[in-house]
């Protein structure tokens, strides 16, 4: 099937002309034009200028709304971006054919490999990559308009990383939506209602205090330490895997992990003392068998409500 970009160059230029304008210094325009080699993507200088003006106006060059950015602020904003990737993505979203050719040459095969790595299956990976390509070409419509996910790329990270994250998002969302879907005729997966949980006996008072102290201590942990604890104890990631995600050395993760555990322990001790236990009683409570505790660590670590992000995920 012949697939073409969602818009022609003329319509894209017309669409770009509709965005709010921002006064961009001509010397900065020339400098940015030379730096990002936008002509390789088939963009004219006018198209390039329209794209970067739109990007700067959409984020007001990283400043609060209402503030008019100076030339230095504009330069700092644009230099902090992956402007080459951003221009390519915007050109693709605008329907520039030469930009699409360059995009496919750069990212087609890596994207398939990434999808296969994410799904762990060649078939699923190719399906995932194919569905993303369909969306990137603007085959999906929302409210009667074709939408291209590339338009949501803001250039803070690399375009390749953004594509990987998009693939991972789609795969995770697909799995989370479908993991409860069971075939009806499968006798092995026939619905088996769980047995009612036995009523727990009243736990000792000190264990109840310990539960609350631990919950409070985890809630007061720093975000990074809670992430480390969750990644290690809940997700089962190794120190090396966590280090790769955070782009630090494995030893650094180990050191931070020990520090986080010590802080949790000290905080629990403090909470127990605050609850009226003596030091010796608090130490004895800490030595209790974890199986006696009515604690769900996963629930504790996940209980804190994350801050809602205003940015919408790409659908």
């Amino acid at each position: 099937m012949e697939i073409s970009p969602l818009q022609s160059a003329e319509s894209a230029e017309a669409a770009l002309s509709a965005v709010p304008r921002m006064a961009l210094h001509p010397a900065l325009q020339e400098e940015l034009w030379r730096e990002c080699s936008a002509q390789k993507s088939g963009l004219t200088k006018a198209e390039f200028t329209a794209i970067i003006v739109r990007i700067g106006a959409a984020q007001n060059c990283g400043l609060a709304p209402g503030i008019v950015p100076s030339r230095e602020q504009q330069a700092a904003f644009f230099h902090s971006l992956r402007l080459g990737d951003l221009v390519l993505a915007q050109a693709c979203a605008a329907g520039n054919e030469r930009a699409w050719e360059q995009f496919l040459a750069l990212y087609q095969q890596p994207l398939v490999r990434a999808a296969i790595a994410i799904t762990g299956s060649d078939t699923l990976g190719r399906d995932l990559a194919g569905s993303l390509y369909a969306e990137l070409f603007g085959l999906t419509e929302r409210e009667g308009e074709r939408r291209c996910p590339l338009s949501s790329y803001k250039g803070r990270g690399s375009l390749a990383g953004w594509l990987r994250t998009i693939l991972a998002q789609r795969h995770v969302d697909h799995c989370r939506r479908s993991h409860r879907e069971l075939p009806i005729d499968d006798p092995l997966n026939s619905f088996d209602p769980p047995a009612p949980e036995p009523q727990p006996a009243n736990p000792p008072a000190e264990l109840t205090v310990l539960d609350k102290a631990l919950e409070t201590a985890l809630g007061r942990q720093a975000a990074e330490e809670r992430f480390l604890l969750a990644a290690y104890y809940v997700d089962g990631q190794t120190l090396l895997q966590i280090a790769r995600v955070l782009r630090v050395h494995e030893a650094t993760v180990s050191r931070k992990m020990h520090r986080a555990i010590d802080r949790v322990r000290n905080q629990v001790m403090k909470n127990l003392r605050d609850a009226g236990l003596s030091r010796r009683a608090a130490e004895e409570a800490l030595g209790a068998d974890p199986r006696d505790l009515n604690i769900n660590l996963k629930k504790l670590l996940q209980s804190s409500q994350p801050d809602p992000f205003q940015e919408k995920a790409v659908r």
Binding site: S152, Y153, K154, R156, G157, S158, G161, W162, R164, T165, I166, Q169, D173, P306, P308, F309, E311, K312, A313, V314, R315
Partner: peptide
């Protein structure tokens, strides 16, 4: 999805 950081922010 509106409560999660988008792909650009996560990346």
């Amino acid at each position: 999805p509106d409560l999660h950081p988008d792909a650009d922010l996560l990346n």
